[in-house]
Amino acid sequence: MTRRFFVVLLLLGLIAIFANLLFNYAMDSELNQTARYYAKHTATDIGAANIVTAIIVTYRGLDTLGEVTVLFLTASIIGLVLARSKNKAQADAQPTQRSNQHKTRPFPSGELLTTGSDLLVPLILLLGAYVFINGHLTPGGGFQGGAILASAALLLLLTNPSRHFSHQLISKVESTSGLIFIVLGILGIFFAGGFLDNRLLPTGTLGSIFSAGIIPVIYSFIGLKVGAEFTSMMINLAETEKKQEKNK
């Protein structure tokens, strides 16, 4: 009971702080110094129509490299943690495996789901590729496009939970795109202004698809990498669940 009381007390304190913040909030009427720099220089220096993309891939490219690394670490840790329990479950399930073999697909998915996913998966993959290739022109980019790619894999998993995905292909796509990202960044040191500088290629005309230097290239590889990482996370979780069911 006292626990509840302290929780309510804490929340009341937070409400007071938040109310104070909310009522004293004044909207800016003009851009602050950093934003003004980005607004003024993006079109001439970077050549990307989408200023947010210019910030993420070039101005704060190192930040994005760190972010991709964190995501990679997350995917690897999930693979590591779940692989151990998978092996254990496998060893436990070995004697009973034969009797359970006919139960691998207890509920076949319906006609509607199967046909729908056959129709939608290529279109979803296409949309994902579109989103990350046009990241420097329209809202979107590598992370969003990668998440869309992974949602296609999720749909495939929903249709057929026992579907086998090639781990090798996924990890190859992931490591190759990560490597290319870093190599392009290092090439920037030698042939352009610095690490991850986008002027490795000409910046082109603002608003066309071949503009903004190497931003579209880098963002495409980020998209592939993020898609592969999200997919591997989902597959790891799904496969562990399968092993767990067999174990019971």
Binding site: L31, T34, A35, R36, Y38, A39, T42, A43, I51
Partner: peptide, 9 residues
């Protein structure tokens, strides 16, 4: 752009 866009950061 200075007068028309919101803060991108």
């Amino acid at each position: 752009a200075l007068e028309r866009i919101i803060d991108p950061l």
